[in-house]
């Protein structure tokens, strides 16, 4: 059904060649930038500058008092020092265990809770609210509460274990190289599984009811319905949730920082706490910055997926 009227052809071809360049377009939209400007300034000052600074610090030896004029060029020394240090491997392994285990169990518990709460029943709202409180209260509060629960002499968990006959005397959860990391992971899961739950509950609402009915009529068992209908619909949300959890876990510091300070003997150090200790504990600014830059690169890789997952469909919307 193509159509061309007589007068149309010439102006179209004559004008279409002219494409406005970026600068004239920016000039045409200049007032639009005013709206974003305050946000940009804040972000620039507190983000762009620090990123630049971290990179710079990582190539220098800076005195403990952080007097920048006394810093000395060190090349890649800080990086080689970090990568060859004896704790690097243990801390990295801890970080991986911490991140993966926290993410995995939080997600699984959250998904389970979401599925159990998906059916309408009296008190569902109350259940959801109660489950979310650990996520809302600060990690500091969680750390103190769990530190008390884990207490080596008067901790309720140790006492329970004895009463139920699991052990003969209370376990010293936090002061034991074998148990400390898993104990901290439990706290972390306690705090954030309900985030996964809320996300998955929202995701479950997008599963078309008709499809589930159709599957039921077609003779699918509950498991089949979950696996073939529900789960594929949750893929997108699951991805975002897992990514967000990973990022949060990778970046979390408070729980190990307050509960154990990385101890005993570095057994619960993860990258973040280790960097903090290098910087503010031992004043090894250069090494800490080098660590941060490495972490940065890892995060950029994760960030690529994060932004991609988060902005699905956004660009489809047009004027």
């Amino acid at each position: 059904m193509s159509i061309a009227t007589g007068r149309a052809a010439s102006p179209l071809s004559a004008r279409s060649a002219k494409k406005p360049n970026v600068f004239s377009r920016m000039a045409a939209h200049r007032t639009d930038y005013l709206y974003v400007l305050p946000a940009l300034i804040v972000m620039m000052v507190v983000i762009a500058y620090p990123i630049y600074y971290t990179i710079e610090l990582s190539f220098y030896r800076t005195p403990p008092n952080l007097q920048l004029r006394d810093k000395v060029w060190a090349g890649f020394d800080n990086y080689t020092a970090v990568l060859s240090s004896s704790v690097f491997h243990e801390v990295t392994l801890n970080t991986v265990i911490w991140t993966v285990a926290s993410t995995f169990f939080s997600f699984v518990l959250g998904l389970g809770a979401a599925l159990s709460l998906h059916r309408e029943f009296i008190g569902r709202g109350l259940f959801r609210a109660l489950l979310m409180i650990p996520y809302v209260v600060s990690a500091v509060a969680a750390s103190y509460v769990w530190k008390w629960l884990y207490h080596s002499d008067f901790g309720v968990i140790g006492a329970l274990a004895v009463q139920l006959g699991f052990t003969s005397e209370p376990i010293n959860f936090l002061d034991n190289r074998q148990t400390v990391l898993s104990s901290l992971i439990v706290v972390n899961i306690w705090r954030e599984f309900s985030f996964a739950m809320v996300m998955m509950m929202a995701g479950l609402q997008t599963v078309p009811e008709q499809l589930l009915r159709a599957a039921q009529v077609d003779g699918a068992t509950p498991w089949n319905r979950f696996w073939h209908v529900t789960f594929p619909h949750l893929k997108g949300v699951s991805m975002v949730t897992v990514l967000l959890l990973m990022v949060a876990n990778f970046n979390s510091i408070i729980i190990p920082f307050i509960m154990t300070g990385g101890g005993p003997a570095d057994a619960s150090h993860i990258w973040i706490t280790h960097i903090y200790q290098l910087a503010f504990g031992r004043q090894q600014w250069g090494a800490a910055a080098a660590y941060a830059v490495i972490l940065f690169i890892v995060m950029m890789a994760l960030g690529y997926f994060y932004v991609k997952a988060l902005t699905r469909g956004d660009e489809a919307r047009q004027e």
């Binding site: 000052v45 620090p50 971290t54 903090y276 600014w285 941060a292 960030g303 994060y306």
Partner: peptide, 14 residues
């Protein structure tokens, strides 16, 4: 995406 710690030192200086 970035942990607080990455920004701590430079922000402290800032």
């Amino acid at each position: 995406m970035f942990p607080a710690v990455v920004f701590l030192v430079p922000l402290f200086i800032l």
